[in-house]
Nucleic acid binder design. Structure first.
Lengths: 228, 228
DNA sequence: TATTTCTTTTGACTTAAGTCAATGTGTGTG
DNA sequence: CACACACATTGACTTAAGTCAAAAGAAATA
């Protein structure tokens, strides 16, 4: 259980001295969550935040009739649930492990104390929250100003860029993908089918080959899928 | 031109010593923007952020065909344009003065230096960014999981709470309100008319009297406007 | 391998809200 | 005061995407 070693390579803790990492490793609490486990719910009181060591976590909102909107999918090394550590005191959304997950929990007070002694972690956290704000900006833009085909094209291009390949593999199922893009699985199916017909992509189960990236970029930027 | 005195009461700078306020007042640059003036555009490089002294500023995204989504309306004392100061280096959205406006500009480097000396401003900024994340969470929820009548009800209740009166006054026009709620003015008109018919509200130009708050809350929470 | 269960796809239909156009209501300027 | 311009409302129509239901595939369990 070498917490210290895991901490060393977490971007949030970049620039800290070994001494501080040592200290952090002492206050961190290690939790395991099985796939499907709710980690926290909207409205829960929080007295700290998490850093994901392994697995994946979705942060999401639910409507009264059960529809889900994913705000963020947290990958290893990223912190999550940090909002109430700095403002308000309750989580603004829900978190669920979508894979078997291990996470560290840091109590609010310890981190703030650490920030008071060494501002580098505060600056790292500011960078992280700013990054999140930027992502939200794109999410809002997508939901409000773009249609589903445009959001889907943007998503595929994002994955393609991140994985540095035109042969992407969806690491989430269609239900989650739909929830991430603010739509429903049926709509995703229909649009992918249409994109195949138009020779923009080729689909093979969870693998999608981006054929006409030029057209996909046009689409992601705001062109219509249907003109022809 | 007493910048020092204005700085003293800005929440972001709470907890600073007079000496530091003094210093800040020296590095701040004062700008005036007439109503309608673009302050910055998405993609512009930024080397600092603003604090609004007077007037109001809208932060917004625009789609290729010109539709606008307001992300935030900045009121006096609030900072804005702070994302690129901490991550990335370009503004993720546009800012426009919607009233004659005075703002201070703080260069990135000076603020970071200040944070390194005194973490309290970093903690204030963390609180602020967290607050913004929380607001985005609600915006995304509204756009994705709620229908326009529900968003509108929530908005009216928010104003009513903020102003502590059931007799609210819209301080933005319908076009901006629509853009804030992710819809268009026509839809706002129609829904307000429907709410009047159902005796939820009473409209008188820019003044709206909330008659049936119970029903509005139900609606804001997710009930349907049309069941009857 | 069979069987159950979950996921995805397809089709027919509905609906909220957008578009476009015309009309009405204010508001500010010369 | 009148004119012009911006803002707001209303009506008729269109449309993207949601709902519901059924079938087909894939994956997990026995």
């Amino acid at each position: 259980m070498d917490i210290k070693n895991s901490l060393k390579y977490i971007p949030l803790f970049k620039g800290l001295f070994d001494r501080q990492i040592e200290e952090l490793s002492k206050i961190a609490m290690r939790y395991s969550f099985l796939k499907g486990k709710i980690i926290f719910s909207e409205g829960d009181e929080a007295d700290g935040f998490y850093v994901l060591l392994s697995g994946r976590v979705k942060i999401f909102k639910v409507s009264r009739d059960g529809k889900e909107q994913i705000l963020h999918i947290i990958e290893a090394q990223e912190p999550f649930g940090e909002v109430p550590a700095f403002a308000g005191k309750r989580f603004p959304a829900n978190a669920e492990a979508i894979e078997d997950t291990i996470a560290l929990f840091f109590p609010r007070e310890s981190i703030i104390q650490l920030m008071k002694n060494d501002p580098s972690i505060a600056l790292n956290m500011l960078a992280l929250l700013s990054q999140r704000l930027r992502q939200f900006t794109d999410l809002v833009e997508g939901l409000s100003l773009k249609e589903v085909p445009q959001r889907l094209a943007a998503y595929m291009l994002l994955i393609s860029e991140r994985e540095k390949t035109d042969n992407i593999e969806l690491n989430i199922n269609k239900k989650q993908l739909a929830s991430l893009l603010g739509t429903i699985p049926e709509t995703i199916s229909r649009i992918l089918a249409k994109m195949v017909v138009k020779n923009l992509i080729d689909v093979n189960g969870k693998r999608i080959k981006l054929i006409d990236k030029r057209a996909l970029e046009e689409l992601a930027y705001g062109a219509k899928l249907d003109i022809q």
